[in-house]
């Protein structure tokens, strides 16, 4: 810690010393809230305002027409495949990194983080390079009547790619902080590896797991750039919700575009509500743990 300059010794203040004056507090709160309203609240309000511009009826028609339903279905499928896979990966990666010391650990950590800073456009492009007709596997796939890009598997792959780090990143610091004493004790008492994982580790990390899953899900359903490159935009077949928004927008159908967008915003809000709930649970558990 940096030393505190002692030169200015003034009489000790008799108010609460770790608080700012009310004016400063008010100004800071005001400043923070105006920044957030400008950048967060305004866009959120705009989505719902534009979506309901022509009333609820138009809104419901927009989100229940067949193409919108197909987009919802595809989005759910992609998330339903991507999340369990990333969950397994997250647990394995966190177990490796948090419970063991080995060389190259920081490189492995950076590699896990990589998909998160790779441009979504590049993420889509690499799958085109591999599975595209001009790519490595393209001709073979075509011969065997299989398609990856411009079909559901491509969208699933792109979704997995962009969400790989989410659960792992949530679990690694958590498991590092918890240490391995409990697991070691279980093993010494004769539990098998799987039993230890199932009865000791998982219960300890369940909230972190849920938290990571929620964020992973939000990102999976909202991904645009990567999915856009591999989708091919076939109506009713390879359009996810976020692509469907773009299509409606391009058809001068602004109200419908914002209606579908509001579904995604709603999803975001539900996600955030769930997350807050999980956080509250964690805090509750932590305080109970502290008191015992």
């Amino acid at each position: 810690m940096t030393a505190i300059p002692l030169s200015q010794t003034s009489p000790a203040p008799h108010k609460v010393v770790t608080q700012e004056s009310p004016q400063v507090r008010r100004i800071l709160i005001l400043l923070a809230l105006s920044f957030l309203s400008l950048f967060l609240l305004l866009p959120l309000v705009a989505v719902f305002f534009e979506a309901l511009r022509k009333g609820w009826e138009v809104y419901f028609v927009a989100i229940t027409e067949p193409d919108a339903l197909a987009a919802i279905r595809l989005t759910l499928i992609a998330a339903a495949i991507a999340i369990p896979l990333n969950l397994l990966f997250g647990i394995a990666a966190a177990w490796t990194i948090a419970k063991f010391e080995f060389r190259g650990k920081s490189i492995l950590t950076s590699l896990i983080d990589l998909p998160f800073s790779v441009s979504p456009v590049v993420a889509g492009l690499i799958y085109v390079l591999i599975f595209g007709l001009q790519g490595w596997a393209g001709p073979w796939l075509r011969e065997h009547d299989l398609s990856v890009i411009f079909a559901v598997p491509g969208i699933v792959l792109a979704t997995i790619f962009v969400t790989v780090p989410f659960i792992a990143r949530e679990l690694i610091p958590l498991m590092q902080a918890q240490g391995s004493e409990e697991e070691e004790a279980a093993i010494i008492l004769g539990a098998s590896g799987w039993q230890t994982l199932w009865y000791v580790t998982l219960p300890n990390i369940k909230w972190g797991l849920l938290y990571g899953t929620i964020l992973c899900n939000a990102r999976a359903m909202g991904e645009f750039g990567a999915v856009s490159v591999v989708s091919g935009h076939i109506r009713g077949l390879t359009n996810t919700l976020s692509l469907h928004v773009e299509i409606l927008y391009n058809e001068y159908n602004f109200v419908a575009a914002f209606a579908v967008a509001s579904l995604l915003a709603l999803l975001a809000l539900v996600t955030l509500a769930l997350k807050t709930l999980v956080e509250a649970k964690v805090a509750q558990q932590a305080s109970r743990g502290n008191h015992s």
């Binding site: 495949i81 299989l146 079909a151 077949l237």
Partner: peptide
């Protein structure tokens, strides 16, 4: 998924 999309 791989198989179905082709069939559809």
């Amino acid at each position: 998924g791989l198989v179905c999309t082709r069939h559809a």
